[in-house]
Simulated assay, not measured.
Amino acid sequence: MTTINDRTLPVLEAPAATSTPVPVRAAPSIFHERWWLDIATQGDWKLAVVKQDDEVIGEMPYAMQRTRLWRVSHLPPLTRTLGPVIKSVTGSEARQLHHELDVTGKLIEQLPDCDSFFQVLDPRIDDALAFALHGFTVTARYTFRIDRNTTADEAWKRLNSKTRNVIRSASRELTVVPDIAPAEFIAFYEANLAARSRTNAYGDVVMRDLVNAFVERKAGMLLGAFGQGGKLVAAVGLVWDHQAMYYLLSSRAQDAHSGSISLLLWTGIGRALERKLTFDFDGFSSPSTFSFLNGFGATLTQRLGVERHGTVYLLMRTLKRKIAPGRVFAPNL
C-alpha cells in the first residue's frame, strides 16, 4: 500500500467486472458496447459486419450525423476510440496479416458514403494499413497509459516531483470519497460550467444518461474530493472494460486545491492496478493537458486516427482554419 507523508490513501472497492462480451469481440473496449453507443449516439449508429459460414468474424460500429450542410460519421460524444474488431486466426504472421486486411477491407466497404468520416482506433490496433490502402488518411494520436503489471510503489516513483508534491498537499486537505451519486456529480459539473459561462460540449442529456448507465452497470465510478465542511470541490468519472480503466470526465470548483484532480487520478490509478487493469489517461487535446498528464510518469502510447473527407468538406474546413486558427493539437488526440 502506498502512503503519502505516512498517510494511507483511501481504499475504494475494486470495480466490478463488466458484462461478458460477444465472442467475436475478442478485444472490445467499453466504447464498443451496444448500450454505450445507443446512449452516446441516441440510437443513431450502425454496425458493419463480416461473416464466414454464418459466423461473425469482424465488426465495426460507426455513428451517423446530419448537419445543415454535411453528412458525417465521427466519434460520438465521450466515445474516445472505436475501430474494427476482428476474430483472430492461427498460423503464420503473413496469414494473420492477410486475414486482417481482408476482413477490414470488407468492413470498410460497408461504411457510409459521407462528407466526412473520422475515428480514432483502439490503442490495441497497431496498424491501419487496410484503411490506407482504401484511401483513408492515417494519422498518429496519443494517450498516456500505465501498464496493468505496474505496482503502486513503482507508479508512485514514476511521478515527477511536482505531481507527487501536489498530491501530498491535496491529501492533507481533502477527503476522497468513492461512489458519489450520479445526480451529485452532474449537478456539480453543471454548476462549474455555469460559473465559467460555458456549455456542456458533450450534450447535457448524453452525458447524464451515460454517467447514470455506467454507474448502474458497474462499468464505472465517480470519485469526489471533499474539503472543509464536507463541500465537494472536485470530481472525476472513470470507466472500465476487461482490460483498461479510462479517465473520462473531471470537474473542479474554481477555488479547489490545485492538486485535487491529481489526487483523484492517483486514487483511480491505485484502484486500476489493484484490479490488474491498465490505466488510460484517454488522450489530450492541448499542450497544457499534455504537460499535466505527463507528470504522472505514464507511457506515451500511440493511437491511430483514420479519416476520409470529401473535396468540398476539406475546402470548407481549410478556409475555416485560416479564418480562425485552432489549437496546436487536434481534438481527440
Rank of each mutant, 00 (worst) to 15 (best):
A213S: 06
E184C: 06
K218R: 13
D179E: 15
T199M: 08
F214W: 00
K218Y: 08
T175C: 06
V176S: 06
N212L: 04
D204H: 13
V215G: 03
K218M: 03
R208L: 09
L174N: 09
Y202G: 01
A181D: 15
A181T: 11
D179I: 10
Y189S: 03
L174C: 13
T199K: 14
E184P: 00
N192W: 07
D179N: 15
K218N: 14
M207H: 07
L193A: 12
F214H: 00
N212V: 03
E173A: 15
E184D: 15
R208M: 09
V211H: 02
F214Q: 04
Y202N: 14
A195M: 14
E184G: 04
T199W: 00
A187M: 01
E190Y: 02
A194M: 11
V206K: 02
N192A: 09
R217W: 03
S197T: 10
I186P: 04
E184I: 10
V206A: 06
Y189D: 01
V176E: 01
A181M: 11
I180S: 09
A213V: 02
D204T: 12
P178D: 11
L210T: 06
V215F: 00
V177Q: 15
R198A: 13
E216Q: 14
T175W: 02
I180F: 13
G220D: 03
G220K: 03
F188V: 06
A191D: 14
T199G: 10
N200A: 02
F188M: 07
G220M: 00
A194S: 12
D209W: 03
V215S: 01
I186H: 05
K218W: 03
F214G: 00
N192Q: 13
F214I: 09
K218G: 04
A195S: 13
N212W: 05
V215Q: 00
A213C: 03
P178I: 11
V176A: 10
A181N: 09
V211L: 04
V206I: 15
F185P: 05
T199V: 10
D209F: 01
L210W: 00
N212F: 09
